[in-house]
């Protein structure tokens, strides 16, 4: 074996052998990579080199919005209107949900899916409603996530919808290694779908199970597309990135209510500007019994549960 420890063993013949081996290796590698032949959606160069949302100049932003409109049109055959609405001065959004009233009909869940161009297959939903037993406890572990009753409400139970809490002290924002998710001045925690690298660290960090990852390419029937889109909001996403509730940024920054609120038949959902002392949410926080989910974690949610008194 001694001669193997020097390179004298290398002869012309072994060189030829090496060449053959290299050729065979290259062929094997090509066939191993064969699945990539079917790739149709390589990210475009513009998308690849695109900067972070907060670093785009107004001109660049216009170009980006145009690119997205073109891409959506190509994919879904509809010309959308993609905007990048700015937060309004003196506004900080807050959500309040009435646990005494919520009947568990999940109308909010479906309105959210329709409004926010969420994937129908696989199903992505931002709102999770728990059916909780009235058994003298408040234990999330005894909640039923997949309840499917004939009719609601269900005697002996109450319902508890959970979605992104838009925390003032958001763990997801803290952990993101590339700042692809951040808090806007109006209190909305957003995600730049074009910047997220898909590490799912934020998903592990979120104590409210609010974040959703696109494990496969989302699919939305063409006729279900909502063309009123925004960059940080409901424009269609691609596989490999994170998404979640963004308080319907395309609606709320244009003075409308979130879709879940409008769909709720029991009026359990309230939304508004906490900086305005006359707003409905300010009234609720001042006058109702309010509860914060997992308050001990210090996340300081902008999402409150309250009860009729």
């Amino acid at each position: 074996m001694a001669d193997l420890n020097t390179e004298e063993g290398i002869t012309r013949r072994s060189f030829l052998r090496a060449t053959t081996a290299a050729a065979a290796g290259a062929a094997a590698l090509t066939s191993a990579l064969a699945p990539l032949r079917n790739i149709g959606d390589f990210p475009s160069v513009e998308e690849f080199i695109q900067k972070h949302y907060t670093e785009l100049t107004p001109a660049q932003l216009t170009t980006v919005l145009g690119r997205i409109e073109n891409e959506v049109q190509k994919e879904y055959g509809i010309r959308p209107h993609v905007r990048a609405l700015k937060p309004m001065n003196g506004v900080e959004f807050v959500y309040a949900l009435n646990l005494s009233r919520c009947c568990g009909c999940r109308k909010c869940v479906h309105a959210c899916v329709a409004e926010n161009n969420q994937s129908r297959s696989p199903e992505v939903q931002y709102i999770r409603v728990l059916k909780m037993p009235n058994d003298g406890r408040f234990d999330l572990e005894s909640g039923d996530h997949n309840y499917n009753p004939e009719s609601v409400p269900v005697p002996g139970h109450f319902f508890m919808p959970i979605q992104c809490h838009h925390c003032k002290n958001p763990p997801c924002v803290k952990v993101c290694p590339v700042k692809a998710t951040w808090q806007e001045p109006d209190g909305i925690t957003v995600i730049d779908y074009d910047w997220c690298i898909g590490c799912r660290y934020c998903e592990a960090a979120c104590p409210y199970f609010a974040r959703r990852f696109n494990f496969t390419e989302p699919s939305i029937p063409k006729e279900k597309i909502n063309p009123n889109m925004s960059y940080l909001g409901n424009r269609p996403r691609h596989k490999g990135v994170m998404e979640k509730c963004h308080f319907c940024v395309q609606r709320t920054r244009a003075g409308q209510y979130p879709a879940c609120l409008e769909a709720c038949p029991t009026g359990s959902r309230k939304f508004g500007n906490i900086l305005d002392p006359d707003s409905e949410v300010s009234y609720i926080l001042k006058n109702k019994r309010v509860m914060i989910l997992k308050e001990e974690l210090g996340t300081l949610p902008r999402f409150f549960y309250y009860f009729d008194v």
Binding site: P35, I39, R211, N214, F215, E217, K239
Partner: peptide, 18 residues
């Protein structure tokens, strides 16, 4: 080869979930 498939189809090819 397995990674090529994962790259094509997404992380749905794994057992992971939300």
């Amino acid at each position: 080869n397995a990674y090529a498939k994962q790259y094509l189809l997404g992380l749905g090819t794994t057992g992971m979930s939300d």
